[in-house]
Simulated scan of single mutants.
Amino acid sequence: MKRKSAAPISVLIVEDHPTFRMGLAALIESQADMTVTAQFGSGEEVLAAYARGIASVILMDLRLPGMGGVEAIIGLVARDPGVRVIVLTTYEADEDVFRAMQSGAKSYLLKDMSTEEIAGTIRAVHRGGTEIPPRIAERLAARAQREDLTAREREVLQALVRGRSNKEIGAQLCIAEETVKSHLKTLFAKLKVRDRTDAAISAVRQGIVHLE
């Protein structure tokens, strides 16, 4: 192991998969200017234990059991507006990126990125920067141009992706079938698609709806 610098960057990891978490911790500890100060497996755990100064940078997985990564980021920012969070995830869906950055994350890294990219981003965020990979930045800019969906539109879209008919969606949401059709018309316009199939594909591809 490399000899640590006098004041290494302290990193906190929030990741529910133990094997990946251990590998990530080893990667960080291999850097002479970094050290891991704490590790948690859920958003609830990190919020319960978080105190200002516990770490310089937090690496946050988005897909966590119970409370999701975005909700955990919102909670951390509410407690400490200066908190520096880097989202680290397998996914690069537009909606996930957008929600994480809107919630206060400073960067967004994919888990298959190199050691140099991950370490470099941690250093940049520690210095106060906002570091986003070019391909992620392009998709984030495109997402910002799309109108936000209402809560009801998201419910309709979720049901559509699960193969529900208009009648079934209406019964599930306790709304008229004509109201469902009206919501779908608005959804198609916002997503810039022509039909139900394209809407379902777009919703999953962009991360608006997740198939568990």
Rank of each mutant, 00 (worst) to 15 (best):
Q206G: 07
V125E: 03
T90F: 15
Q39A: 13
E177C: 06
V11G: 02
T130M: 13
V87I: 13
V83R: 05
Q145H: 14
R194N: 11
G170S: 01
L62K: 05
H126G: 03
V83S: 02
M22G: 11
L76S: 03
K106G: 02
E15G: 04
P81Y: 09
R146H: 15
M113G: 01
A51C: 06
T19L: 15
E44N: 09
L110V: 00
V11E: 02
V125N: 03
A189H: 06
T186R: 12
R79L: 14
V87K: 08
F40G: 03
C174S: 15
V70G: 03
I73C: 08
R146W: 14
L47H: 02
Y50K: 04
E212W: 13
F20V: 10
R196I: 05
A189V: 04
L12K: 07
P65F: 04
L12C: 10
E117S: 06
T115W: 11
A26G: 11
S42L: 10
L110D: 02
E29S: 11
M34N: 05
S103M: 02
L59C: 07
P8C: 02
A151V: 15
A176W: 11
E95Q: 12
I58T: 05
Y108N: 01
I9N: 01
V77W: 09
V193S: 01
L187V: 00
G207T: 03
A151P: 12
E138H: 11
S107P: 00
R194D: 08
E45K: 13
G53I: 01
L109E: 01
V156A: 06
P8L: 05
A72F: 06
A32K: 15
R52L: 14
G120K: 00
T197C: 08
V97P: 00
S10T: 10
E92I: 14
D198K: 07
L12Q: 08
A141Q: 14
A105C: 02
A144T: 10
L191S: 00
K167V: 15
R143Y: 10
M60Q: 05
A199Y: 02
R196L: 09
V83K: 03
T130L: 14
T35Y: 12
T89P: 02
D80Q: 12
V204H: 06
E29I: 07
G75H: 04
E95W: 12
L12D: 05
S182A: 11
G104M: 00
V85Y: 06
M1Y: 08
G75P: 03
T37M: 10
L149H: 07
T150C: 13
G53R: 01
Q102F: 03
T37V: 09
L149P: 05
M113I: 01
E71Q: 10
R84D: 04
E153P: 07
V204G: 04
V156G: 03
I74H: 15
R135A: 12
N166G: 07
I73W: 11
G23P: 01
P18S: 13
E44K: 09
Q206R: 15
E212V: 14
S56P: 05
L47A: 00
V180C: 00
T19V: 13
P81S: 09
A124Q: 09
V70K: 08
L191T: 01
S103F: 00
S42I: 07
I208G: 03
V77K: 12
H183G: 00
A137K: 10
A137T: 04
I136K: 06
K2F: 06
R79G: 08
G53T: 01
E155K: 14
